[in-house]
Design a protein around this nucleic acid. Structure first.
Lengths: 372, 372
DNA sequence: CCAAGTTCCGTTAACGTTTACGGTTCCGGG
DNA sequence: CCCGGAACCGTAAACGTTAACGGAACTTGG
């Protein structure tokens, strides 16, 4: 049924030229006249040439170097992302991917240096977390100009020329949180709060909007307060949420969209409103577990860091292997963790999280760099 | 850093023999004495030989044929599973996988014939849905004896010698349903029902047990009734649930774990208890949408058919490519669909579901067979 | 003892791509 | 006229594996 795929030789033969020329033409290598280059490329198109990746890899033995620029992270989120990337890299059939981890100790610290190093060392692709999109945007542009594709994880850097973005769908998580909040509160009425990292980040604004929209279209008796911005600073989160808890006595629930849910929980505890509030948090990490188990946190929206890492590497690799024609915007659905299924997710996290830091693993020959 | 991987030539040289012998020894091919075979295999182990898949594929050009034996299905579930399989097959770097679809029109009808055909035609692997594990178990054994690995989707066939199983985690779905049920009902008290396909199927019994356990440990005021078995027969589902609705006036909620939620909904409608009940269903298909949107179905546990298909193919392919050392039991977390995030999932389903039937796609050169 | 068969093993040509190297032409300057 | 260097192009050797062929050594049966 399927006729044998066309090879470089086929193209060469049908043009009366040689394999070498065809190869040079298709790769924009020097040493071929514009005329023949055009003829070759045309012929390749009409014959439907698609390179044989096995032969390519076998011949050149050049590996794809991918730099992973992420945060050290306060919770295990980024460890999981990196684990997902490693896992996916190890699953590549041709073992031609090597991953270099460049980990920044704190938010916005060393991000640019890491990016610069990656470009300087001419990696083939970059997976990055643009915590502050504005500061990273010029770097992403620079990489794109150097023909280095960049995939963003968790947060987007719009208009930066990035190749793709892998993140949790903001609409899906914002509205499921609102829906749950509404249902959990039942007939209760009152006000509901939401905390975000920063409304300037597209994702957070969108998540907020989705939360608000769902809330007011299905549960109009609940009133959404102005979002609290915590900028991932523990003190700020504690101060602002404590102030909220003290002032708004009609507060019925709060949706914490950031990783910094512990300060909020502490504030709720200190102001003795913990068991009065319906609290929905984000992500899953050890310190949060007791709150979920006790029911204080009624549900948490799990952002599937491992899946994000996997998808990011996959996207990048597909593109590098052969001009990815798949969608470059991957929006994952979040998972919902509650008391009942908590153990399922904990078991899952502990699985295969062998070497947590970015140290070399045998399979991926990973390197790691630290940016202090 | 990474020294070049060992090749067949390396093994041959260090033993003073030839590549051909090494190859034969490692593949249990005839024409090599037991003594040298042992020596070769030992040396391969000590040198840490791992075959170069690129070279292997380039040389042999043999494609892996995989038979996908699934149900036509009343809802779109199986279409999605197949789409996931196709998608994943197309993403394989070396395009050496071809998928053959053998689709059974109805539950338990033609399953064995399909299996027999797959074995007879000597496919390299089988992905199957063992709707009735007992009837399929001998066939899976037969396939295993013929060294054809079998991966089960959605339902397990224990003790059958199958290579692996991909399914939604029963514990995760059962307990999240219970947790939601409890939270949604709030302080309300009463009885709760659950419908299953058949308690003889391991998965369903487990899901039921998880639901019960979570319910009674966190919401002891709710009383779980004996499970209703519908055997995927619409009439049976309608009759039994209608009877339930008429008799149990204290019924507060029901969790429908089968795909046959429509008859139950109809019964609830006919007995005028639809808006009094808290209903949680399973999966997502067009006819269910209005019920979710109206709030009659408060949530549905989405079993991620596409992800199941992808994982199944992946598992099988990894094994066929080189003795998969990854876990062979993939338990996926279900997704939760409610009014708020409904659109997200609908958009996602309509995406890339181009050719819904098992017709040939250009990438995977898929064939399809019908078993009537 | 020779022919024929068996068992074991070495050799070699593929597979499609990359890459280095050698050969043409064609041009301008000595 | 010849030499140097471009600019273009053909050739061939790798890459690691598979599979087919051929050749030794050794067993049999006549």
């Amino acid at each position: 049924m399927g006729k044998p795929p066309t090879t470089l030789g086929d193209i060469a033969k049908s043009l009366g030229t040689s394999i070498g020329t065809v190869h040079r033409a298709l790769h924009d290598n020097p040493g071929v006249s514009p005329a023949t280059k055009a003829r070759v490329q045309q012929m390749a198109r009409t014959l439907g040439y698609r390179p044989n990746l096995a032969a390519r890899y076998l011949s050149s033995k050049k590996t794809l170097r991918i730099s992973v620029n992420t945060l050290q992270g306060t919770t295990s989120f980024w460890d999981e992302v990196r684990a997902g990337i490693r896992e996916e890299a190890a699953a590549i059939l041709l073992e031609n991917v090597e991953v270099e981890f460049r980990t920044c100790p704190r938010l916005g610290e060393g991000e640019e240096e890491a990016f610069e190093a990656a470009i300087r060392e001419k990696v083939d692709g970059i997976i990055t977390f643009p915590s502050r999109p504005e500061t990273l945007r010029p770097w992403i542009r620079r990489a794109s100009r150097a023909r280095i594709p960049v995939v963003c994880v968790a947060t987007d850097a719009p208009n930066s020329g990035r190749l793709g973005i892998v993140a949790i769908d903001t609409l899906a998580s914002g509205s499921i949180a609102a829906d749950l909040m509404g249902r959990f509160l039942g007939a209760k009425t009152g006000s509901v709060a939401i905390t975000v990292f920063d409304m300037a980040i597209t994702e957070h604004a969108e998540k907020c909007a989705a939360f608000e929209s769902t809330l007011q279209s299905f549960y109009p008796s609940l009133h959404l307060l102005k979002p609290i911005e915590d900028h991932d600073v523990e003190k700020e989160a504690y101060r602002k949420s404590r102030k909220l808890f003290e002032e708004r006595t009609d507060l019925a629930g709060i949706y914490v969209t950031t990783e910094a849910s512990l300060p909020v929980l502490k504030a709720a505890c200190d102001t003795k409103v913990l068991d009065r509030l319906t609290i929905i948090t984000t992500d899953l990490f050890p310190d949060l577990v007791p709150f979920i188990r006790s029911g204080a946190v009624v549900a948490t929206i799990y952002q599937r860091p491992r899946a994000q890492g996997q998808m990011a590497l996959r996207l990048l690799h597909e593109y590098l292997a052969e001009g990815g024609r798949r969608s470059n915007q991957v929006a994952l659905a979040p998972h919902l963790v509650m008391r009942g299924n908590l153990d399922f997710f904990l078991r899952r996290q502990s699985q295969e999280s062998g070497n947590k830091n970015g140290t070399a693993s045998a399979d991926t020959r990973g390197l790691s760099h630290d940016f202090a």
